[in-house]
């Protein structure tokens, strides 16, 4: 479904699907795997936690990699740069990937990013050779700063994490897209398929989402819908939309219409 000649590059990694899908909050692991397949994603996010070993014959890593999904570890739950940097190191160690979705959260009611800590953590992790994908607010200035620090992409939010409110400030996303050269990945707040289509119509390179699929009444069907929406939005962006107008512009010519008052000419 995704076009073969419309690959996008994430820090040198060519990807066909423009969706990055989270692995949390599904009704079950089976539904998660089916939904990931249905979304067409190639890259899935995981968190890193203490787990007592030897408790189960199945583990998430094997289930995901056996199906060919690449893994993007996150630093969810980190509230300081120090915390996030340690988690990134553990993730690189556990998963053998330099990719890190960097989240440094400011408070637990809004889950909005703490920009001061985020810039600090980005600086450290870039210096230590990580491919840093920072989750940030939809501020063009911050996005530019992150690019200047060496982030591999910027991940502005559409709305708060898990809110499903959709894209609250499309203009800021347009500004971000026009001001940085690295990929712009809309992260968090997407609620349904049309939100995804809009993100791509705005020119964003990818969308990262989780709850919109996981918490739908039918996650697998929603994953499929969102895959279609991503393709639709991206194709619409590439096609280049028509200009918007205040007043109507007729699509059929005026010339050659029949005259209802036509009378016999004497």
């Amino acid at each position: 479904m995704e076009s073969r000649d419309d690959l996008w590059m994430l820090a040198g990694l060519p990807l066909r699907s423009r969706l990055i899908v989270g692995t949390a909050r599904y009704p079950s692991v089976s539904v998660m795997l089916d939904a990931l397949e249905a979304s067409g994603t190639e890259l899935t996010t995981v968190a890193l936690r203490r787990v007592s070993p030897g408790s189960s014959q199945e583990n998430l890593y094997d289930l995901l990699t056996a199906r060919g999904f690449r893994i993007l570890p996150n630093t969810a739950g980190c509230y300081t740069a120090k915390d996030a940097v340690l988690t990134a190191h553990l993730a690189r160690e556990a998963l053998g990937t330099p990719l890190i979705k960097l989240e440094v959260i400011a408070d637990d009611e809004t889950l909005l990013p703490d920009i001061v800590q985020l810039l600090d953590a980005t600086r450290s992790l870039v210096r230590e050779g990580f491919t840093v994908l920072p989750y940030t607010n939809d501020d063009p200035v911050t996005a530019k700063r992150l690019e200047d620090l060496g982030a591999a992409a910027v991940m502005p939010l559409a709305a708060p994490i898990g809110s499903g409110l959709g894209i609250r400030n499309p203009h800021n996303l347009t500004l971000i897209r026009s001001r940085v050269r690295i990929p712009v990945i809309v992260d968090a707040g997407v609620g349904t398929a049309s939100d995804v289509a809009i993100a791509f119509e705005l020119g964003c390179d990818a969308v990262l989402l989780n709850s919109a699929i996981a918490r739908a009444q039918e996650p697998v069907r929603m994953a499929r819908a969102i895959r279609h929406a991503a393709v639709a939005g991206r194709q619409a962006f590439l096609a280049g939309r028509m200009p918007q107008r205040l007043l109507a512009d007729p699509t059929s010519p005026m010339a050659g219409r029949i005259d209802p008052n036509a009378a016999p000419i004497s």
Binding site: T45, A47, L48, R50, V51, P53, N59, N74, L209
Partner: peptide
Amino acid sequence: IDVLRPIQGGT
């Protein structure tokens, strides 16, 4: 000593 593994997570 902490033993960490990937678990289900999103954003």
